[in-house]
Design a protein around this nucleic acid. Structure first.
Lengths: 235, 235
DNA sequence: CGATGAGTTGACGTTTGTCAAGGCCGGTGG
DNA sequence: CCACCGGCCTTGACAAACGTCAACTCATCG
């Protein structure tokens, strides 16, 4: 799987399973597997997907965000109420597949499996970092951490220009990610803008102006965070 | 690996690696691997271990709690500042080992690997449930959830009598787990006790009196939670 | 019997959520 | 082209939840 770009992963996957088709989803769509399985894997080819978990009363937490090339394991559990669900945040191209489809003895299948395992380990690190901010951690820390995580991950897939990038999430969704209300997300972002830490343009465009300050507030060593939450594709 | 009791796992592991020794830790000890590795696995034979993650300012979050038979992957990352660490909560017997030690082609090694993978998936579910409560979620929800998770897991290893069990954690540590201050943990528990939901005896003993109410507050369907966060050892 | 560490309770301040109103922007239909 | 509408962002006012500080109690251990 040379280079391990998104395209490589997708190609290997589809060569192993000729019937597999790339699918699409629009913002707000819930991504499901068409078929009766207890769990399935998701490969995001392009776009943003939120992994969410809900309480009965409707409170929803975004547990992780998936971007180009990311895998996730969605456990459907057979129950009516899913423990997880995956929701498209913008226009998404993806491939949904099952465990069996990559269980073969081919070296490509084995490489894919180990790549997938590494990806899941990194997901776990991200979740733990997020958990740390949600437990103790002020609104400022949470928002700065979210900005940094999304920045690093967009950078890893080449979707940043300097410190400029685009986050296709409403403030309500950012709140679902950071455990804050949409109103407080707004306040916090505006305060950062007033203090010259970030600049926002339009609905989704963000520029980090004072990266060092953001890192300090988030309690993050940028290089360390990168090595922890970004999968090293050259490995 | 018949039955897959703690003892079975430990036996398989030690037969594969005759040099491996069971180790011990006292409350407050940090569990490390003696040797220079980037990451290592932990099998808890008996006792409680907290997986923690810290911010520079000392704020510490307990990301997960391990009990008899649980595995964890500890990534040491080579840096001076560890992303994770494992701390004994009471008297602990454990085995620390590396990836290589279970990489062999023996069927026992393969069974151990797949068991370990399943264990890690369950850990991920637990972390996500916790994340959901820490994001949105009042102190009451968080405490009820923590009680239920610990109850279910103790029950799974046969360390409950009816709804009586023992939690070897201080209120401060419960706060590190739920993202609350020790004072607020205390207040919340006392309020539950006044309202006849739980009864506490001594430092560590807890009895859940009104299980249904606790579940309702936590937003938990007990059977569903069990299937999600407890590894089915018979599988 | 003192010392230490943990649990308990009250008072108080801060952070954050909620409610509500207004502004901005993109889309849609006349 | 314009009017309207709906969704999202923004800001203020207020209330509730929670953290912090501090004092006191209780249990355990020497």
């Amino acid at each position: 799987m040379p280079g391990k770009t998104v395209h490589d992963k997708q190609r290997v996957l589809m060569e192993l399973n000729p019937d597999l088709r790339e699918q699409r989803a629009k913002p707000g769509d819930t991504i499901v597997y068409e078929g009766d399985v207890a769990s399935f894997f998701l490969l995001v080819v392009e776009g943003w997907v939120a992994l969410t978990k809900s309480l009965e009363d409707g409170e929803t937490q975004i547990v992780d965000v998936l971007m180009d090339g990311d895998f996730a394991l969605i456990t459907a559990n057979g129950a009516t109420l899913l423990p997880y669900s995956a929701e498209a945040l913008d226009e998404v191209r993806y491939v949904a597949f099952t465990q069996e489809m990559i269980n073969g003895p081919q070296p490509e299948a084995a490489a894919l499996r180990s790549h997938l395992a590494a990806n899941i380990a990194v997901t776990q690190s991200r979740t733990a970092e997020l958990l740390l901010r949600l437990g103790h951690g002020t609104a400022e820390q949470r928002v700065c951490y979210a900005l940094l995580e999304l920045f690093l991950r967009l950078e890893a897939v080449g979707k940043t220009q300097e410190a400029n990038f685009s986050i296709p999430m409403t403030q309500k969704q950012l709140g679902m990610f950071t455990g804050l209300s949409n109103v407080h997300i707004c306040r916090t972002l505006r305060r950062f803008a007033r203090n010259g830490l970030v600049r926002t343009r339009g609905r989704t465009k963000v520029e980090i102006i004072d990266l060092e300050a953001i890192c300090r507030i988030a309690g993050v060593d940028l290089e360390m965070l990168r090595s922890e939450i970004i999968l090293d594709e050259s490995a």
